[in-house]
Nucleic acid binder design. Sequence first.
DNA 1: GTATTGACTAACCATTTAGTTAATACAAAA
DNA 2: TTTTGTATTAACTAAATGGTTAGTCAATAC
Lengths: 213, 213
Amino acid sequence: MDSQIINKEKGTEAKILDAARNIFHTKGLAGARMQEIADEAGINKAMLHYYYRSKEQLFDAVFKEAIGRIFPIIVQILSYEIPLFDKIRIFVKEYIRLMRENPYLPGFVINEITQHPDKFANLFAEKGIEFPKVFYDDIKNSAEKGEIINIDPLMLIVNIIALCIFPVVAKPVIKGIYRLTEEDYNDFMEKREYEVADFIINSISMNNKNGDK
Amino acid sequence: MDSQIINKEKGTEAKILDAARNIFHTKGLAGARMQEIADEAGINKAMLHYYYRSKEQLFDAVFKEAIGRIFPIIVQILSYEIPLFDKIRIFVKEYIRLMRENPYLPGFVINEITQHPDKFANLFAEKGIEFPKVFYDDIKNSAEKGEIINIDPLMLIVNIIALCIFPVVAKPVIKGIYRLTEEDYNDFMEKREYEVADFIINSISMNNKNGDK
DNA sequence: GTATTGACTAACCATTTAGTTAATACAAAA
DNA sequence: TTTTGTATTAACTAAATGGTTAGTCAATAC
């Protein structure tokens, strides 16, 4: 009944998936050990195979779930019918927040896709995920109407995603280089939730910039 | 004598390092196999241990080299005494080019630092690498003089790095989502070598923007 | 001409690891 | 109470993997 709410007595299968998520997200497919996942879940290793047959299938379950968390939200927000700048602001804020809540998610996904690009292509096609053409068109139209500078929509989209995701993926690098404490880093990322949108909008706004050339 | 120039008859130690670089960069520490490295080098597995003692020490050699390739160049370019905008243009162009030439390098480094942050910190301190304060000050000064908008230097620096590195790290994701061919992707990245600087400079330029709030 | 050394190999060893199996606990159905 | 099917475990297996060893070979030293 209230199984979603009460966390204490999860079924074994769910406990396994939780544990697998923790381990796979932090160590990746190659670095994860079935025994470690079993320990994390507090159950016998044989149960992993009982419920998920093999390491690969358990991994696939985790990976699918991760893809399902990263992409649909992009699709959803970017499909709103609101002015471009508002859309950018909402997207940036929500996406950075999402990444901060799941800090290992983007690195995990990027890494595993790099390692098995084929698997990703299949899954992506199979799930029917598609990047919202709406947003692409938004940018194109705004550019044509002269509301923003003339920019290849793909260029802008990649810039937006890069600014949201990179600082999360590279967290330990940034912390290391600038000797930031965990708190420093958190403050920094919180500021980004709104400043990144400013940065982007500043860049594509017309103002008095001498249009083409 | 001319050992550096002629590439055909490398010493065994160098062959091992080359092979190890290939394998570790693409598969990471956990995913790499000593046998595979030996095969790639065309030598016996025992030689890996003969020259480098253990997998970990071989990995360290590769990792150190990678750190040495990624950071010193940043430091160097960002220390030039030239106007800020020129510096940004040169840096972006050179850095994107460097990343494209070593496409697995940034992902490898980020990933392994995430997995062993401690090791990175040590190495970083030991090598005495330090992020150029000059550039930080450049930004701060330009902001104070009103030549650019008021922005936290760290924020800008992270944005610049993100825009350079992310599209390389996430190459298979971008290709997958937008169904780009290798050629499409290359064209895209070539465009970025100069457009990214425009994007950044646009964003921080004063123009007629009504300064503060 | 013999001893020594560095480079190298094949075979081996110990451990780890994914996966299997056979036995058992347990609850629900008959 | 017996039966039956599901959940769970301890113990095991086979393959993979990092690392070692004993020994070969060619060049160099003495």
